[in-house]
Amino acid sequence: MGEGGIVRSFRYWHEIVLLVLIGVVFAFAQMFEPRFLQLDVQRELSTHIWEIAILCLPMTLIIITAGIDLSVGGMMALCAVTLGMLFQRGLSPWVAATMGIGVATLCGVLNGLVVTRIRVHPLIVTLATMAAFRGAAEGLSLARPVSSFPEAFGWLGQGVWWGLPVPAWCFMGLLLLTASAVGLSRWGSYCYAVGMNPEACRFAAVPVNRVLLGLYAFSGFASGLAAVLFVARRNTAKADIGMGIELLVITAVVTGGVSIFGGRGNLLGMVLGVLLIHETREFVSWRWSRDELNFVVMGLLLILSVLLHRWLTPANRNTS
C-alpha cells in the first residue's frame, strides 16, 4: 500500500492519533462508566454501525481515487424498494434481496459510466444520481413501506452467530476481501495512482476507467448489501432508508485519515475512524443521555482529526 517517494515522513501518524483518541475514550469510559465497556453492552450498541462500516469500504477506495459517492443513500433506497416490491409480489425474500443488490450494483455502474465516459466530477454526478435514485425509489413505492418479512430473513439483520451480530460477519468478510484486493493485487496501487495523478496514469497505461467503473459498481453493491441488512434488522423496506447516510460515511472515512484530495489513506485508518466515531457517539449518549451532543462531538472530531493530521505531517502537498 505504499506511495513511495515520501520516505522521510512516518506514514502512520494519523492512525496513532486515532488510537490515542480511542484510548482516551476508553479510559474515560473505564473511569466513569465501567459497564459501558462490557462485551454484551458493546454488542448491543453496535447493531447499527455495521451498515455504515460496510459503506465505508468502497467509499474509502473511491475517495483515495480523489472521487466521492454521494448516492449511496439513494442506491440503498432503490435496493430496499426493489426488495420490498418483489417480496410483495410473492417472491422469496432471499431472491428479492439478491435482485435488490443487483439493482443497486447497476446504479453503481451507471455512476461509474458517467464518471468515466463523460468525465464529470463525481461530486456532481452522484449529487444528481442521489436525487434521481431516491426519487425513483419514492416514485416506484409511492413512499409506502413493506413489512412482515419472515423470521428467517430477519436473522440476517438481528441474528447473532459465534458471539457477533450477523452484519458484523458480513462487514468483516467484505473487509478481508477488499483488504486483500488492495494489498495483494495491483488494483490497490492503481487506486492510489489514479488518486495521485489520473493523467499520468493514462500515460502509464493504467486502466483508469476500469478501476473507477469497478469502484463505483462496488459502491453500489455495498449499498445494496447494507440496505438488505437494514431491511432485515428493521423488518421494513421503505424509500426513506439511509437518508443522509452519505454524510455519516464520508465523515467516518475522512476522520480515518483518507485525504479528500485523493492518493492518501488506508483501510486500517478507516476502521479506526469508524471505531472512534462510533465509540465516542455511544459513550456520549450513554453518559449524558443527550443525542444532540453526539452531533457536536462528531463534527468537531472530524475537523480536529484533520487539523491534528495537518500539524503532525510536514506540508508536502500544498493544496487547499
Binding site: 454524510l247 465523515t251 443525542d291 444532540e292 452531533f295 462531538v297 463534527g299 468537531l300
Partner: peptide
C-alpha cells in the same frame, strides 16, 4: 461537513 454535523447538534441543543 464537520460544521454541518456540529450545527445540527447545536440546533437540538
Amino acid at each position: 461537513l464537520g460544521m454541518l454535523t456540529a450545527f445540527k447538534g447545536g440546533t437540538e441543543f
